[in-house]
Amino acid sequence: MNRTAWHEHEWQLIHAGAQSPSMHMALDEVLTTEVASGRRKPTLRVWEWASPAVVIGRHQSLRNEVDSDAARRHGIEVVRRISGGGAMFIEPGNTITYSICAPISLVAGLSFQESYQLMDSWVIDALAVLGIHASYQPLNDITSPAGKIAGAAQTRRGGAVLHHVTMAYDIDSTKMLEVLRIGREKLSDKGTLSAAKRVDPLRSQTGLPRETIIKRMIETFRLRHGLNDDRLGAEELALAEQLAGQKFSSPEWTAAVP
């Protein structure tokens, strides 16, 4: 397969109202499948969160990663996503999350590491516009001299690749550490014992409102690759609602690795 360039695709933007954590998990699966089948054009989806969440990776143990009692106490929904990677602690105003659903041709012939680098490159540009000297850091981080900014995860579905990224706009480290279990082994080669200290969020680095950062990011993508405003189709929404209820809210999926 020949590799395609970003500008060879007609990129679509979806930036809908706030949705539940399980609905976001479902939309990633539905839209990636739709792009794989060719029914949907390549899409950038910017997420708005309706409620707080812990999102664990496809292969993480629920018990090892999350203090479920603490999550319940704080009203935090725990969901499992379809991609690998680590747990994320989400509060609606504190996080900027987006997904790119692209034809697999965009990353054809690339290693996984090259593919993360390629998919993150536009956002490195966007951060530069905001005055942040960010860079891709293998395996799946975006970092700045002041600290980690974001984490990415990819998965592939037939003819499409899903690349989604969560950026820290602000962070309540105390609450995060109550809800996530972060073991000493994980931090053994990170050079710090404090998970909270590893992250330096966008709010403190830019002083800008979250909405402004999102607007600038979308502008950067539009300038670089072209971007048409789009919306979720009725059928896509119905499929996602069904999946959100039947799969992504079910204990069988969330505790798939108990």
Partner: peptide, 25 residues
């Protein structure tokens, strides 16, 4: 992460987990 039991000197209930990536899952 590996969770497992040892019964009759053999590995059982082996479950590997973690924040890695593997395709296909």
């Amino acid at each position: 992460v590996a969770d497992l039991n040892v019964i009759d000197a053999r590995l059982t209930d082996v479950r590997v987990s973690g924040d890695f990536f593997i395709e296909p899952d």
